[in-house]
């Protein structure tokens, strides 16, 4: 049996705001094997980005990781000291943030920015080796090595985004977290960036977590999908199961809301709004919008349970629905 590259166990993040404690991540469990691609979907405010930041240990006050562990490649990141964590970033776990292309320094050449990343990790002592790594990283994202001599403004949005991917994979991390890497790009560039990410992932054998709300992108890219809602995982299944036979009522509504080529002009929005994290309803946080909610849903938080070896659903009623059919 392969060793999982990532094990997240009961991860909890709380923001201490003036209005009270906000639980942004409420006991999330996750495992990921090498080479697997996981999609993390949810509405804005569902905790997707908090999850990524928590795994990178980049949650800023007033937020704090309150409990749980993040084990990447056998090392528990939550137990490292700050210096060890700094070294782990980019070499074990790397993060491509939303709008990464705007994070490039406009007055530094691309090569110099990449050199910084390698030097900070003291992994390649001599200059030749550094250059080789930079060239290899640029080539693997389909850019010419001459891009290293350019400034960010000389590149298009898609090229800048691919530079960010190149920086992300410089030190061959075991896990890449990409937070909406294509949200500002048009469809053709989006496909190009995602295909680059795909080929890079295959070369490195790394696992990827793709965060986003575009289910279409998920269908095209990932192997497994995790649906988040109010800081909790609602369902975790393979992409086939998720699209053909979603179980959790929220996942069902999400799949139903997708545009479809066969029924033109038919919309299925999800009625209601996601609750504010400060005032979560008791029990299952989805029950006010759930079409099949029962009394038990208002009283108890449903745990994420394995319904089959590859499917995890957090709903009191899922077993029942199956039996009725």
């Amino acid at each position: 049996m392969t060793q999982p590259v990532l094990t997240v166990n009961n991860l909890q993040v709380t923001y201490f705001t003036e209005a009270g404690r906000v639980r942004a991540l409420d006991g999330v469990n996750l495992t990921l094997n090498p080479g697997e691609k996981l999609g993390l979907v949810g509405e804005s405010g569902s905790g997707k980005s908090t999850m990524a930041l928590a795994m990178m240990r980049m949650i800023k006050p007033p937020g704090r990781i309150e409990g749980g562990s993040v084990v990447v490649d056998g090392v528990d990141l939550t137990k490292l000291n700050d210096e060890e964590m700094r070294e782990a970033r980019l070499s074990r776990i790397s993060y491509i943030p939303q709008g990464a292309m705007n994070s490039l320094n406009p007055v530094m050449r691309i090569g110099a920015q990449m050199r910084d990343a390698i030097k900070a990790h003291k992994l390649a002592p001599d200059a030749d080796d550094i250059e080789k790594r930079i060239n290899a990283a640029l080539v693997s994202v389909d850019l010419k090595p001459t891009v290293a001599k350019m400034y960010p403004h000389e590149l298009s949005g898609g090229m800048k985004q691919r530079v960010c991917i190149a920086i992300g994979i410089l030190l061959h991390p075991k896990l890449i977290i990409a937070d909406e890497p294509t949200s500002a790009l048009d469809v053709v560039t989006q496909r190009q960036v995602m295909q680059t990410l795909d080929s890079v992932q295959k070369q490195l054998g790394a696992a990827i977590i793709l965060i986003g709300h575009d289910m279409g992108l998920m269908a095209q890219f990932v192997d497994k999908v995790a649906v988040m809602y109010t800081g909790r995982l609602m369902e975790l299944s393979t992409v086939q199961d998720m699209f053909t036979n979603p179980q959790h009522p929220y996942a069902v509504a999400l799949i139903k809301s997708l545009p479809n080529l066969n029924q033109r002009g038919v919309f299925h929005g999800i009625p209601g709004l996601a609750p504010a994290l400060l005032r979560l309803p008791p029990g299952c946080s989805f029950h006010p919008r759930c079409p099949i909610a029962q009394d038990i849903c208002k009283a108890q938080v449903p745990p994420l349970e394995a319904k089959t070896p590859t499917r995890f659903v957090a709903c009191h009623l899922v077993e029942k629905i199956k039996n009725e059919k």
Partner: peptide, 11 residues
């Protein structure tokens, strides 16, 4: 290049 949310229609 549209990522259709449809497993049968690949990119």
């Amino acid at each position: 290049s549209i990522p259709w949310p449809d497993l049968d229609r690949r990119w």
